[in-house]
Design a binder for these strands. Structure first.
Length: 284
DNA sequence: CACCATGTTCCTTG
DNA sequence: CCAAGGAACATGGT
């Protein structure tokens, strides 16, 4: 469940749920996803450690640990495309693709990932270094955005996925932000004007914070069977609460459907081997 | 069987 | 040295 908003909603669920819990057991089921990649080293490092807080940087979760001389100060986690993390009752069956399971005594912490593109790293992930400003912080400005675009002939949609330009944007919100800013996705990054950059800066903040609010307000569970995914099409119905069908995206995954602003047909193109969705008349 | 999928890294090419 | 393009990682859904 990637992209900044989904990771942030997960963070808000995990932070209070894990605070104060002590790691009493460590089971590694997918060695490929952990760094350093030896289960014994991970177990030795984490046994007895206590969770203090869960924070976020870009699409990374940062688990701060305390209470053990030998324990690392941090674990960083990345969910890749299909990673999930949640607390589970001890008697519940482990998911098929569990990667790491932590015994917390009265519950389990499960990290699962079917495709296995995510990872768990002790201390800070080395890729942290090159990450750009957090889009919802003051460090992210029109100037920082245009500086990131400067000199690049890459399409602006592709450049938005470059985490060194701005942190946390993925394939869905890149299309959404460009649509709201009225910028064609194939425009070269260096050709984005100051006026467009100003709009894009605002719409990036807008789409991300709206998604966080939506995800937070839906009170979705994160347990197995209820994946807590709120990023596709319509939301899962909330028991006892209205219809549940929430229109989340204006262009993403809407190829062939009418534009919500002008009625033109939304198009799908492929850029850097990923789908891009846009309105040919609103974005020109 | 074909194609698609929320991400990132690595290798090659220019 | 750099920027850009493409393959690769692996599994499941339609």
């Amino acid at each position: 469940m990637p992209e900044l908003p989904e990771v942030e909603v997960l963070r808000r669920y995990l932070d209070p749920a894990l605070a104060g819990r002590v790691i009493q057991g460590v089971e590694v089921r997918k060695v490929r996803l952990i760094r350093p990649s030896t289960p014994a080293a991970l177990r030795e490092a984490l046994l007895g450690a206590r969770f203090e807080s869960v924070t976020r940087r870009a699409k990374f979760l940062i688990f701060t640990l305390a209470d053990r001389a030998k324990a690392p100060r941090f674990i960083t986690g990345h969910l890749g495309m299909t990673g999930r993390m949640y607390l589970q009752a001890n008697q519940d069956p482990l998911p098929k693709h569990a990667a790491v399971v932590l015994d917390l005594g009265e519950a389990r912490f499960v990290y699962e990932d079917p495709r296995g593109f995510g990872r768990w790293t002790l201390e800070f992930d080395p890729t942290f270094a090159g990450i750009g400003p957090e889009p919802l912080s003051e460090a992210f400005t029109v100037d920082s955005l245009l500086a990131g675009f400067r000199g690049s002939s890459l399409a602006v949609k592709v450049k938005l996925l470059d985490q060194s330009v701005v942190a946390g944007i993925g394939n869905i919100y890149a299309s959404e932000a460009l649509f709201r800013a009225g910028i064609p996705p194939r425009r070269a990054a260096k050709r984005v004007s100051a006026a467009e950059g100003t709009r894009l800066c605002a719409t990036i903040r807008e789409v991300l914070s709206e998604a966080i609010e939506l995800g937070s307000s839906m009170r979705l569970g994160f347990a197995a069977g209820n994946d807590g995914l709120f990023y596709y099409g319509s939301a899962a119905p909330i028991p006892g609460e209205a219809e549940g069908a929430v229109e989340r995206f204006r262009v993403y995954d809407r190829a062939g459907q009418p534009c919500v602003k002008c009625g033109s047909i939304i198009r799908r193109i492929v850029q850097a081997q990923r789908s891009t969705f846009y309105c040919p008349s609103c974005q020109r």
